[in-house]
Simulated assay, not measured.
Amino acid sequence: MFAVYASEPNPSDPLASLVVGERDTPTPPPGWVSVSVRAASLNMHDLWTLRGVGIKPEQFPMILGCDGAGVLEDGTEVVLHSVIGDPDWGGDETLDPKRTLLTEKHQGTFAETVVVPRRNALPKPAGLTFAEAACMGTAWLTAYRMLFVKSGLRPGQTILVQGASGGVATALIQLGVAAGFRVWATGRSEEKRALAKQLGAHEAFESGARLPERVDGVFETVGKATWSHSMKSLKPGGVVVISGATTGDASAAELQRLFFLQLRVVGSTMGTREELGDLLKFCDLAGVRPQIGAELPFEQAAEGLKAMVDGDVAGKIVLSRNAG
């Protein structure tokens, strides 16, 4: 079958390991299902796989793609949940020590067919296209959990989203506005700030800019480059929710500010199957649709991944059978 995969780990030049070619069609083990992939979205995790982060050398070649939407053999349209846990684990699967994501242990979605546990294939709302649905499983689910499960914030309060153009950040802006938060965002360029405003952000500021007032919550995926600004932007008792650190770990934890102002720092990773189901219902009911910056044929996966390497993104990049 056709597939886009990493041939080997390459920390210094990840795109050099990218192959667009053929792989064996997978056969689902008991309890798993085959999904004919219609669309899949790109994530930073795909670049990490190409670099060999979180995956052992002997697990290559590895088909890329955490997220996807497609069709079961009986014609049911589905959205994929990429967190695969231990079948014996009874709680929140994001806390399962044995959990894994597609492309860490199991082959991913950048292919004609992917196999997943039956419970990881959720019904796709008819109102979402395959390309829109393919954005939900990682970036949008991460944003949903950060905002609605982890933050403890209420509609009407003010939130700051750091880094306005990435997949999680654009999802946070759209979800926050739809839920009734006052949403502020930061962006490195005028174009990125304009995108935040286009998505509904009430204000957009330059990275590191002094805000008109402190906020109730900050949502972080950037890390070192924005951490100090995030901490300084919070009201006493405020919360920063972090799900990534694309610029590296913070050089200072701001501990004095943390304890003196009684701030909260909350980590968040992905989301549960139930949360994905709720996210899909929310988007369907509220008419919220993901910002898709580019929709490309699967054959042009290298172009999409290069845009991620260069930081040239404006929402989600989607690979689609209908693109081109």
Rank of each mutant, 00 (worst) to 15 (best):
T49I: 14
T49V: 15
G52N: 00
V53A: 01
G54I: 10
G54A: 06
I55N: 03
K56G: 08
P57M: 11
Q59Y: 14
F60Y: 15
F60Q: 02
F60W: 07
P61C: 01
M62Q: 05
M62K: 11
I63F: 12
I63L: 13
L64I: 05
G65C: 10
C66D: 04
C66A: 12
C66P: 06
D67W: 12
A69M: 14
G70Y: 10
E73T: 12
G75F: 05
T76W: 01
E77C: 02
E77L: 04
V78G: 02
H81V: 01
V83F: 00
V83Y: 00
V83R: 01
I84R: 00
I84C: 03
I84E: 11
I84N: 07
G85V: 03
G85A: 11
D86R: 08
P87L: 05
P87W: 05
W89P: 01
W89T: 01
W89V: 04
G90P: 01
G90Y: 08
G91K: 12
D92P: 09
E93P: 13
E93W: 12
E93Q: 11
T94S: 07
L95I: 01
L95S: 12
P97K: 14
K98D: 07
K98T: 09
K98M: 07
R99E: 03
T100D: 13
T100L: 08
L101I: 11
L102H: 02
T103P: 01
K105A: 01
H106R: 14
Q107T: 08
G108S: 02
G108C: 05
F110Q: 08
F110T: 06
E112V: 01
V114R: 08
V114P: 03
V115Y: 09
P117K: 07
P117N: 12
R118Q: 15
R118W: 05
R119M: 08
N120E: 00
N120K: 01
A121T: 02
P123Y: 12
P123L: 03
K124M: 14
K124A: 08
A126W: 14
G127C: 08
G127R: 11
G127N: 13
G127Q: 10
T129P: 07
A131Q: 13
A131H: 06
A131P: 02
A133H: 00
A134E: 10
M136Y: 06
M136W: 06
M136S: 13
G137E: 15
G137L: 11
G137D: 15
W140D: 15
W140T: 14
T142N: 12
A143T: 07
A143D: 04
M146I: 11
M146G: 06
L147I: 10
S151G: 11
S151H: 15
L153R: 15
